[in-house]
């Protein structure tokens, strides 16, 4: 049986267009996806395709307008103890220390302070932040913050881990380190992970399967099986299989990215066209305007 079963999901938002009028924007339409127990599944799609919206629904933070989502055969509820979410923006509580941040999910579950601390310290060690237990989030780098957020979710042992572009805001080196750490952690306990990303490489490196989405209104275009062997390491990026899968994924997503950009441009084009050639006479005029002011000023200084 599938862990997560989403069928015929429909979601639309009320948005204000450029002219201040309310219009309906369909973000997801006829979206179907099944996630297997214990698998690492990535959802790969162009920006604005509704992938984060779907993840929010899984987390109970958003509701679909049509269709249904089943987790373990039951409808998704707003409040549940079996899901954990890692956000792109870390979502750490700035007034709590690193240790207290990792404890918060356990606190919600009613554990005693001593038990909470024992568990939290174990997971802080797992992400290599034992030495930072008493620091506050603003004293950490972005990569460390995301490590804390991952430890926080792992600590309360959810069945499903939802990750919304968790490494997108990090610099390239940190991102690669964290990807490998996530592989290490996941390969140890095989939680079901749904991972949102717009990076093809990241999706392939981490996942068992990659669901490629279409441009808005989003649906699953195709699911790619990533048959790369595990345990995976950094070198796998250089293998020919990796390159093949990447090329295939890119061929699937290329059109969708162009389409998604088209959707953006159709909004922007009405406002003003991008100038192809600089207008030199105008630039000279601007220069003269500025020179007139600073020229006078320079004389005063001189």
């Amino acid at each position: 049986m599938s862990k997560i079963q989403a069928s015929k999901i429909h979601r639309q938002f009320q948005v204000n267009n450029d002219f201040g009028k309310k219009t309906k924007l369909t973000v997801l339409d006829d979206f179907n996806l099944q996630v297997r127990e214990g698998e690492f599944l990535s959802i790969l799609g162009p920006s604005g395709c509704g992938k984060s919206t779907f993840l929010n629904m899984l987390a109970g933070l958003d509701k679909q307008d049509g269709g249904q989502i089943l987790i373990d055969g039951k409808l998704v509820s707003d409040r549940s103890f079996d899901r954990g979410m890692v956000f792109q923006g870390y979502a750490l509580f700035p007034w709590r220390t690193v240790l207290e941040n990792v404890e918060i999910g356990l606190q919600i579950r009613g554990l005693e302070k001593k038990e909470r601390e024992e568990i939290a310290r174990y997971y802080l060690a797992m992400v290599g932040l034992t030495a930072f237990a008493n620091r506050y989030p603003h004293q950490l780098s972005g990569g460390m913050k995301q490590r804390v957020a991952i430890a926080r979710v792992l600590a309360y042992q959810p069945d499903i881990m939802l990750m919304d572009e968790p490494f997108a805001a990090l610099d390239a080196q940190t991102r690669e380190t964290l990807q490998l750490e996530l592989i290490r952690i996941w390969e140890a306990d095989k939680k079901t992970i749904v991972f949102i990303t717009h990076s093809i490489d990241e999706a392939i490196l981490l996942s068992d399967r990659v669901a490629v989405m279409t441009a808005r209104p989003g649906k699953v275009k195709e699911i790619i099986d990533v048959s790369l062997p595990r345990p995976r390491s950094e070198e796998i990026r250089n293998s020919s299989e990796f390159a093949q899968i990447r090329q295939y994924a890119w061929s699937l997503i290329k059109n969708e990215v162009t389409k998604a950009q088209g959707l953006q441009e159709s909004i922007e084009n009405d406002q003003g066209r991008i100038m192809v050639q600089p207008i030199l006479s105008l630039q000279q005029k601007f220069k003269d305007m500025i020179q007139k002011r600073i020229g006078g000023h320079n004389e005063k200084i001189g």
């Binding site: 933070l61 923006g89 999910g105 919600i108």
Partner: peptide
């Protein structure tokens, strides 16, 4: 709102 969402995703009650 991210903090509120984060707490919600962990199953926090309204009171919490």
């Amino acid at each position: 709102t991210l903090l509120v969402q984060s707490a919600k995703s962990m199953g926090a009650s309204q009171k919490f």
